[in-house]
Amino acid sequence: MKSKLTCLLICFLFIACNNKDTLSFEPLTIATDSCENCTSVRIEIPEATGKTKLSKTINAALEGEIIALLNFDEESNAQNLEEAKEAFLYDYEELNGKFPEESMPWEATIEGNIAFENENIITIKLESYIYTGGAHGYGTNRFLNFDKISGKELYQEDLFNNLDEFKTYAETLFRQQENIPAEGSINNTGFMFETENFYLPDNLGYTETGLLLFYEPYEIASFADGPITLTIPYLEANSFLKYPKKP
Rank of each mutant, 00 (worst) to 15 (best):
A87P: 05
P46S: 13
G64E: 12
P100T: 11
T29I: 14
L70T: 02
C35F: 11
S34V: 07
N96L: 06
L54Y: 01
T29S: 11
G50D: 09
N37K: 15
T32P: 00
A84R: 02
I67H: 04
R42H: 07
N71Q: 14
T32F: 04
Q79R: 13
N59L: 13
K98I: 14
L54K: 00
T29Q: 10
I45F: 05
A68T: 13
N59I: 05
N59H: 10
I30Y: 10
T57V: 14
D33T: 04
A84M: 11
A31G: 01
E36W: 00
L28Y: 04
E36Y: 02
N71K: 06
E86M: 13
S40G: 08
E83Q: 14
K56Q: 06
I43M: 08
I58P: 02
T52A: 09
E86Q: 15
P27E: 15
I43K: 02
C38N: 05
T32R: 01
E44K: 07
P100C: 09
S76D: 08
E83S: 14
S40P: 00
Q79A: 12
G97A: 09
K98R: 12
F25I: 03
E101K: 06
P100R: 11
A68S: 15
E82M: 07
A78Y: 03
N80D: 08
E82L: 09
N77L: 12
A48V: 00
E26K: 09
K51F: 07
P27A: 11
E36R: 02
F25L: 10
E82H: 12
K53M: 03
A31Q: 15
A31V: 00
